[in-house]
Design a protein around this nucleic acid. Structure first.
Length: 299
DNA sequence: CTGAGCACCTGAGGGC
DNA sequence: TGCCCTCAGGTGCTCA
């Protein structure tokens, strides 16, 4: 279930097991994911010198100047097992990397993920990376940037937000959630957004992603203690997946529509494009207790 | 150039 | 129980 916060959470969980570690063993168990998988041998004995995220890609820089590029697609996940807890590979475990600290497994049932070994210098020329828009949490993604970019686009704002040329990392869930917070209707033609609405939207995207990353990070710690696997925070959303349920602000039933073959969720009462601030304090978020993973009202 | 639609692949869940 | 249908959080390509 990877969107940007999940990828960021995965990267943080991965760091102690991969950064500055030598790759001692590599099993490539699937000939191809979205693209053919590379041979294992050239990776052996290389050390991971730097780990970073660009959009939803995880980049592992290696000691010979090459780079591993990992994308989780729709169903991919990376699991970590400490060295003492190795288990036989499961059905959709496609790539298994071993370092002295443990094993890192790429599991992806739908095989929409990607595992590439890029040559030195390819980072600045690879078509997957060069066409990407700015990071949503970076300094380039401002209200004026967004307003300028949207000026010529007639496509609905929800669809535009998911275009990686415009901004990366905003997937189906967070596009719906950010628009809910910004009180913007998902079917609004992108070029009709005012500068002020763009400002609100940028703020809302920031908040939504930042909160999700923070939540993912805290649940990751709990989960890693128990079985060494990366776990994703069970987000409770304002709109996403809540078809027919009462809006947490006004109790109007949340509606579901299809845009560009993807589900969009919104509140027809709250999202009328009235200019206003970003919804900052969710009325009754059913967030989880960081200690016991139950409701925050836990005993 | 923009926008719509399709393709990739497998599993989960609901209805009958 | 089992079959069939629909849906799923991504992204690149083709075509009009």
């Amino acid at each position: 279930m990877p969107e940007l916060p999940e990828v960021e959470t995965t990267l943080r969980g991965l760091t102690p097991y991969l950064l500055h570690q030598k790759i001692t063993q590599v099993q490539i168990r699937a000939p191809k994911l979205r693209a053919p998988t590379p041979p294992a041998k050239p990776l052996i004995n290389l050390t991971v010198t730097k780990l970073e995220r660009r959009a939803k890609y995880i980049l592992a820089h290696l000691s010979n100047g090459t780079t591993l590029l990992i994308h989780l697609g729709m169903s991919g996940r990376l699991t970590i097992l400490p060295a003492a807890h190795a288990t036989p590979p499961g059905k959709h475990d496609h790539i298994i990397l071993t370092t002295p600290k443990g094993t890192i497994t790429l599991n992806d049932a739908r095989r929409f993920g990607l595992f590439l070994h890029l040559k030195e210098g390819a980072l600045t020329t690879h078509p997957l990376l060069t066409a990407l828009g700015p990071e949503p949490l970076g300094p380039q993604f401002t209200a004026s940037y967004l307003h300028t970019q949207l000026r010529t686009r007639k496509t609905p704002i929800k669809v535009a937000l998911m275009d990686s040329h415009l901004v990366v990392g905003v997937g189906n869930i967070y596009a719906s959630e950010s628009l809910f917070r910004a009180h913007i209707h998902p079917q609004t033609p992108a070029h009709k957004l005012t500068l002020k609405q763009c400002q609100t939207l940028v703020t809302c995207i920031h908040q939504t992603l930042t909160e999700a990353i923070a939540a993912g990070g805290s649940s990751l710690r709990d989960f890693a203690h128990s079985n060494g696997q990366l776990g994703y925070f069970q987000h409770s959303f304002h709109a996403y997946g809540r078809t027919g349920k009462p809006c947490l602000t006004c109790a109007t039933p949340i509606q579901k529509i299809t845009q560009a073959q993807r589900s969009t969720f919104f509140c027809p009462h709250c999202q009328k494009n009235e200019e206003g601030g970003c919804l900052t304090a969710p009325p009754s978020r059913n967030t989880q207790c960081a200690k016991c993973a139950r409701s925050k009202n836990c005993p």
